[in-house]
Design a protein around this nucleic acid. Sequence first.
RNA 1: GGGCGGUUAGCUCAGCCGGUCCAGAGCGCUACGUUGACAUCGUAGAGGUCACUGGUUCGAAUCCAGUACCGCCCACCA
Length: 903
Amino acid sequence: MSPSEGMAKAYDPRQVEERIYRFWEEGGYFRPRMVPGRAPFVITMPPPNVTGALHLGHAMTAAIEDLMTRWHRMRGEPTLWLPGVDHAGIATQNVVERELAREGLTRHDLGRERFLERVWQWVYTYRARISDQHRRLGVSCDWERERFTLDEGLSRAVRVAFVHLFEKGLIYRGTRLVNWCPRCRTAISDLEVEYEEVPSRLWFIRYPILGDGWNGPGTWGSGRWAEGATRFITVATTRPETLLGDTAVAVHPKDDRYRALVGRQAVLPGVSRAIPIVADVAVDPAFGTGAVKVTPGHDPTDYEIGERHGLAIVNVLDEDARMNEEAGPYAGLELLECRRRIVEDLKREGLLEKEEPYQHAVGHCQRCHTVVEPRISTQWFVRMRPLADAAIAAVREGHIRIIPERFAKIYFDWLENIRDWCISRQLWWGHRIPVWYCDDCGGYTSTVSDPTACAHCGSARIRQDEDVLDTWFSSGLWPFSTLGWPEDTPDYRAFYPTTVRETGYDILFFWVAREVMLGLEMTGQVPYRVVYLHGLIRNEHGQKISKSMPDAERYDPLHIIQEYGADALRFTMTTSSTPGNDMNLDPRRIEGARNFANKIWNATRFVVSNFQTAPGTERAAPELPERWIRSRYHRLVGEVNALLEEYQFGEAGRRLYDFLWSEFCDWYIEVSKLRLYGEDPARAETAREVLLEVLEGSLRLLHPFMPFVTEELWQHLTRTPFAAGRGYGPALIVAPYPEPDTDALDPQAEADFERVKELVRAVRNARAERRVDPSRWIEAIVVAGRHAPVLRSQAEVLSRLARIAPERLEIVEERTERPTEAVPLVVGEVEVFLPLAGMVDIAAERARLQEALRAAEAEIARVRAKLENPAFVQKAPPEVVEKERQRLARALEEAERLRAQMR
RNA sequence: GGGCGGUUAGCUCAGCCGGUCCAGAGCGCUACGUUGACAUCGUAGAGGUCACUGGUUCGAAUCCAGUACCGCCCACCA
């Protein structure tokens, strides 16, 4: 059977991936296989938001997690990778609202119920799409355990967690200054505010001071409002419209300029309210004028100043950022319009001292990018301090390891400075807050199942809070809510705590820290033992790819899969970056990975074509190339295992690439052809055994990186007549991961074969440089000294790979006579002469030798200088010194040979 | 204002708990393609003061300090 009959000439992922995926899924290989006494390996997949299709960032997550999952599964551990999807509260509500907007509708036009129906439609569409994308990526997660944050079980977990925290006093309701998105019309947490530098202005506004013969203002807008005032205090602000809500002016207590004014009253332009001048250390005397307008209702710093001085809070904004009735003459205006008008009016009244251009950071809503307004409102909060302390301790004490380590510091910093978490959202899509208010006694009732009466007074007149929870509240329970918690289910018992949280570092605070806190609080255990953070995928402009990008569609992994195959994408993802570092996905690398898949496809095709008969009975002893490749392979097994243990996936993948391409394909396959196409069946048999051992093992090693092509090839390989009947099992996905066999390590063979390779390369080089016809068989004399016996044993390899005529290859210990008219080469301790009749340019050869000698002498000088340095000999480790000595000896010998050749 | 990451061949990136790394890969480039797996290929080759400055060390791309760019995160200076 010729190879073309069984396998295509080039690997075509489209012919393979779908079939292989079905094979795995139908074979039930994604389900954990329990092994008594064996610790399981568990990852809960970071649930993608149902806001849209997956992008390349998700493909990264999938590639790395599947790599870990497949590796552990092959090691025989009970392995569970649990998939799921996140309802993503505010984000999903927003995308659906945007969709409605295109129809000219708002959610209020539909009402809560019909709006939620629309959202569910959306969810239905995108869940299917996400699931399809994941399958195309080849994820080996257990679909039967797929979860959604709004599932009944998970919703119950949310309730249980809420009630627990509520009863423990860790959840409380309070009226505070919160971040308010006027577009979403909801409070958001500190984390959901994104600060952005924007060019703005600093307006310097004069507030007249009451007294000194001035008893108050005139009519606002008349141009004579401040007529008669003699003293003013000037404040600088970026937000003139908020002055309508000012309740004080503050100066630094030690600021001499204003000392006399503290305790007096200024009059607020526009609304003509008298407000006190107070002294507070929060004021920076060096900024602006050193006097600050204090607006406790719309600024966090001012809020604190207000608390210290018992200032009133005046809220001048509506929930959609229009000026409310407190804004007096400006009531009803949109915020920016109000700003424009008030500046104009201040000017007219002679109260605008000056304005300067000014750049400052303005908070925007993470989800809709509207400018966030600090606003007083009544919300639910989680008291974070005690939870954060436990989460810090878990990492500090080593119960959780963060990779890469530098993120531990970032994690600590955040938790140490954490503020209470606002968890209520004035949205419709999400888990409804499980609190009921009593119309009679005003008490709060929070219970797991819906109450029928107030827990305090027994009244039946209770109403549930209209709001929903921050979506991250349910995300924070993911490692255990997905396993059945709060019920004591078999899955929860078997798989919790999980093993690894693998995700992008951008959600360390949003998610990971909260999982750790809630995990510890709710289950008393860490949710996982390792946090592995990968970098972000950036586009050609260096922007992080996310679902909210307008052109997110461009980054659908299916585009790449369609063109290059899933394995190529995955191999690129897992090997072209290091943990925690971002990557620009370079199409050339994907192409390289695609070529690699094709390379191993063809290598296997070659092997398969030679495996069409059952094993023979006679087998020759392994020769140098066989011992070499086996040693290299077993060394590789050890290295790859060690690297995977250390989470160094990229390095492990690169080693596999190098070994398969540069050693196995480039050298051993070439050598094996001598056996396979030669006269001696026993040698051919040995070569087949070695090809099988190394290739089959390599496919297993590579499987977590390139699951599809390796599975397909492994099936072809293990079903050949030669390989069949050796107990290979039904599927690579569950074949055992190779274990290192130190007995196969053979440093001598590695060194000897390395010499053979160098010799071949040197001859090829000499031929190429002298333009020897590639088809021409040349003559060679090898003066090999102590290496003669080994090289003689490899005469066939040398002659075939360097295209030296076998009958004209002479390998001797010593040189008896000096060949004339020959190209001389020196390869370490070995000399080669190529009598290339008519092609030898004596002068050129001399120059070449001269150059080589110069190099050798430079080497000698360098190493000698090192060895003559007493400090080096004394302080460097003996083995390093010894290495240098050997290096010197080798260089001396080489120089000697070069000189001899030039004589 | 703090903190972190990056700066290595033309391009995209490895290497970085110091010693055959007088630095590697892929792509690109140059020349050549004999060969019964592969042109998604093969062979050979060119190409880098490892951002800069100083320090530690017998020895530094690798450790320390500083500088310069690029990027990110955190932060209530109006």
